[in-house]
Simulated assay, not measured.
Amino acid sequence: MYLRTIHALSVVLLIAVPRAIASQPCAQFSPSPIPIQQLPDYFPPHTSLDATTLLDTEAMRQTLTFYPYIIDGRAFPSLSSIFTTDAVANYSAPLGVLKGLSTIAATLEQALASFPGTQHLLGPQSVRICDSKKAISVTYYRAVHFLPQNGTVGPGDIVGGDSVLYAYGQYQDTWEKRDGLWKIVYRNLVYMGPFVTGTN
């Protein structure tokens, strides 16, 4: 009898836990950053995906993949492919909260102008479709900032440079589908460690 009771409780827990995880509302994902300990509550493993969900998820992943190309290639006007015009991005200190696409683009351009080059590597990534017009995602990243040599900044200064600045973190993004396109309406950049200076 005791073993049967334990088995029954285990079955109930196995059913209840995924439901509790899946019930975490998307609305609580922003504007405040989500502590890393809570991320599993927002992105439980998918048990099944229909064709529409797969297509929407892939569209957002392709958009996120485009982001490093824009940043590292200094093609800041192309950020309009990533963010809505009224987007808000909390890039944390020292950049802070940036309101509007034009502010986001101008601030990132100015902040990265002091580095002769950067490379952003995207890591683990999860996307959750909330409804037909809203979604959330989290993407790990590592950003390498090449430090200027001899006090000058320019593309040629990367060659032979041995000093770099590493940043480790994650992008927590809230998406909306407008005019058939998924774009970010709110971004929280969450650092997962201190800036680290090293060598190539």
Rank of each mutant, 00 (worst) to 15 (best):
M1Y: 11
M1T: 12
Y2C: 06
A8V: 07
A8T: 13
L13D: 08
L14D: 09
L14G: 13
L14E: 11
I15M: 12
A16K: 10
R19W: 15
A20C: 15
P25D: 04
A27N: 10
F29V: 03
S30L: 15
P33W: 13
P33H: 06
P35E: 01
P35W: 07
I36T: 10
L39E: 08
L39T: 10
P44I: 09
P45T: 10
P45S: 09
H46C: 12
T47C: 08
D50C: 11
D50A: 03
D50F: 09
A51C: 04
A51P: 09
T53H: 15
L54A: 11
L55C: 08
D56W: 14
D56G: 05
D56A: 08
T57R: 11
E58T: 13
Q62L: 14
Q62P: 00
F66S: 03
Y67D: 09
P68F: 07
P68S: 10
I71N: 10
D72G: 04
A75L: 14
A75H: 13
S78P: 00
L79S: 04
S81W: 00
I82M: 03
T85V: 08
T85L: 10
D86C: 03
A87P: 01
A87E: 03
A89P: 00
Y91L: 14
P94K: 03
L95I: 11
V97N: 02
L98A: 10
K99N: 11
L101S: 01
L101V: 00
S102L: 01
I104Y: 03
A106L: 02
E109P: 00
A111Y: 09
L112D: 05
Q119D: 05
H120L: 14
L121T: 13
L122Q: 11
G123W: 08
G123P: 00
P124Q: 10
P124R: 08
P124V: 07
S126F: 15
I129R: 11
I129Y: 07
C130E: 02
D131Q: 05
S132Y: 01
K133S: 15
K133Y: 04
A135N: 03
A135L: 05
A135Y: 02
I136Y: 06
V138M: 10
T139R: 09
T139N: 14
Y141P: 00
A143P: 15
V144F: 05
L147V: 07
Q149V: 12
N150T: 13
T152Q: 14
V153Q: 02
G154R: 02
G154M: 05
V159L: 15
V159M: 14
V159K: 15
G160S: 05
G160Y: 11
G160P: 04
G161L: 09
V164Q: 07
L165D: 08
L165Y: 00
L165R: 05
Y166I: 11
Y166V: 06
Y168L: 09
Y168I: 06
Y168S: 12
G169N: 04
Q170P: 10
Q172S: 02
Q172H: 01
D173C: 07
W175E: 02
K177S: 08
K177R: 13
D179H: 08
D179S: 13
D179V: 02
L181S: 15
W182L: 04
I184Y: 00
I184E: 05
R187A: 03
R187D: 06
R187W: 03
Y191S: 12
M192L: 12
M192W: 01
G193F: 04
G193E: 02
G193C: 01
T197G: 12
T197D: 06
T199Q: 10
N200P: 13
